[in-house]
Design a protein around this nucleic acid. Structure first.
Lengths: 225, 225, 225, 225
DNA sequence: AATGAATGAGAGTTCATTCAT
DNA sequence: GATGAATGAACTCTCATTCAT
């Protein structure tokens, strides 16, 4: 699927992607030197998120991106070396944004079970605004396996680490480990697909409540609150 | 990700795919009439599973398939109308095979929690033999969304139905529903990815034990065994 | 410049190229398996000699080749992996044909000075029929340096070897070596350019006579005839 | 091949080219009016000699030139109307410099055979410092045929004229003419390629000695010294 | 004069699909 | 049925040239 925690590309505000991805482009050695250049790069990145989100990497085209961005075909290559490269920048950007979006919700929670609940709720809400995230991160499996693996490995590792810390605090059972982290990530990703992308009917909080209740009994320590 | 329950393409025996997929092809209106034809169709389907499993749908090519199958390029079109069509046949075949592989393990269990444990163990074991299943089902999201959705919807529905039956039997909590079904499917898919495709180190039974313990407390009814 | 000894591409007979170049293509792993395929390959090779001879490698285009050959653009790639590859095949073919054309004239001569005279005359005559050879072999310096170097190195080496043999027979001076071989090759190439490609006025035999007279005194042994 | 007589682009001092070529550029109607402009033009011309020498005309790029020159891409068009135009300026410049380099050595000789010897030695030495000259003049055959022809025609004509004068002085045979001029030019060009560009082992003087001895007998008048 | 972003025509290459043998 | 050559639309990427700043 896609991700363990929210994103922001092509946001309603229309510019959120660029923050991180523009840096990736920069680190790829094609940083714009003028304000006009920065505007163009931003337009291309937003357009790429749209194009790939709608059509996927292979069906999407560079000319589709530049058409959406309202720039000439050649301008694309002023900022990216190849179609693969924008895609890579986008995947990393989305991965970062998902993480940045849910982290505060998780941090704000007082108890680890509540943290997981908040994370899932926040993730589902986020996915609703950024349905393209699934298509983009999923297709990375084929186009940029490294980013794909990195995304899931680091997401799972973050979950594992916070569960371990919670175990130390006595909030979750001591035998909780990597298996549980991957299990939770998998649940979140599929619930995001079902209740974020597929159908908007359910209330994210309700879905999160149901899962949290299961987790409280499944991995929580009774009376640790 | 990919799937909730096992597959069989490109099996060690090298022919398993064909049973089901050949019927799909037949239903697509190109059933071979001679024994020679049946052999060619089987070769093409096995080769397609290999090709798409290795390279994905877009990077895979019809000529790659016929080369692997040892038949002429043109022969492909004797059995399939298009590249999309083999892929569709393959996705449905895999979906069916995953289902057919895990179902017996689930049926054999005495208690629902044990059934879920057996299903996951069986699934991980299966994935190890058919790592291409993830790539194929995942890419269906772009190539054949209908099959993709059908696969996950029907898998989740099967889980939901058996949990409902178990609730009636008093083996799992009465409040278990669709959310739990999608959560379990997500866990299974990601654990299959992590411990089936990615890394062969862990013992599937151990992974399944950890998950079953969590589920027993999370959704199980104490003393229902 | 171009070459030390004659060529044959795009000959009046229109098919000469293919003999050798078709084998190169074959050795490149794309040998046609049917008579129709052989005809197409021949048409492409002849067209490539024309296209590159007229426009040079960089200005020439694959679509120009297929247009001349009267085949579809894609058919080109049935026989060659790239534009570079036809060019390479062509250069090697031309090198071989130049050699094959002049060698008999040289062999037929009774004395080495007469052999050099006959070689030059034959070369000029040949160049007049295949003016494109200069453009093709010259541009190889940029496109396929290996073939370019090989062409001149082997041509010079052939001259050196036959002069050495002649020295043993007492027909030319004993101190004749590599320097003289390259000098003779250079003379031939430029006289071919001047009296073969550039201007058809002079009689090749007259040019060859003048050079032979100079060589007779310059490297010949008096009274060795 | 390339040329009959010396050049100077991309010289060790790094600026020599400009003297002549800047005039060509000027004659092309874009003479710089300030000292800063002259410096920029010089930098572009030197960079162009490097770029085209290394990569050839077609593989070389305007942006490669400006990068080497350390100026902005757009600045190129302040001094040249097109890529072709720099190349043309460069070819003429190189032709002139080759001529200017060898002429003094030829003039200084007391006897025509010695003059030819000195010319060849000087040419080989020169080529070693300016190996790019072959690539540049050779590619002119495709890019700027007029300059290409002019270069060889005028070089051959200079040789012919000095041989005619020498014949009048009784230093070379009376029957020496255009054929001999082209032959000598061809020898020089190929010996420059072999012992100047390709391999630095041989001593230019030794090569020139061998050729001079051959010419002395071939076209010289005995006892004319 | 200098800068560097923007432009867009053009070229090479791929490959699903067709069809004559 | 099988074969493999032929087709051509489609796409990515390059780069000379222009132009606003």
């Amino acid at each position: 699927m896609a991700t363990g925690r929210g994103a922001q590309a092509t946001s309603p505000k229309g510019a959120a992607v660029t923050a991180t991805a523009a840096e990736d482009a920069a680190s790829a050695g094609k940083a714009p030197r003028t304000a006009r250049g920065r505007r163009t790069l931003r337009a291309i990145l937003d357009a790429a998120a749209e194009e790939f989100g709608e059509k996927g990497f292979h069906e999407g085209s560079v000319s589709g991106i530049t058409r959406r961005a309202g720039v000439a075909l050649g301008s694309f290559y002023t900022y990216f070396d190849s179609k693969d490269e924008v895609f890579r920048a986008l995947v990393r950007d989305m991965s970062a944004q998902v993480r940045d979006h849910v982290t505060p919700a998780i941090r704000a929670a007082g108890h680890q079970i509540e943290a997981e609940r908040a994370g899932l709720e926040s993730f589902i809400a986020f996915v609703r605004d950024h349905k393209e995230i699934y298509r983009i991160i999923d297709e990375a499996e084929f186009v940029d396996p490294e980013s794909f693996n990195l995304h899931y490995d680091s997401t799972a590792e973050r979950i594992r680490a916070r569960l371990a810390a919670a175990a130390d605090r006595g909030e979750v059972r001591a035998d909780v480990g990597e298996v549980h982290a991957w299990a939770i990530m998998g649940m979140n990703v599929f619930l995001g697909l079902r209740y974020g992308v597929r159908d908007d009917d359910a209330v994210p909080g309700d879905v999160a409540d149901a899962v949290a209740a299961m987790l409280a009994r499944g991995i929580g320590v009774p009376d640790s609150e």
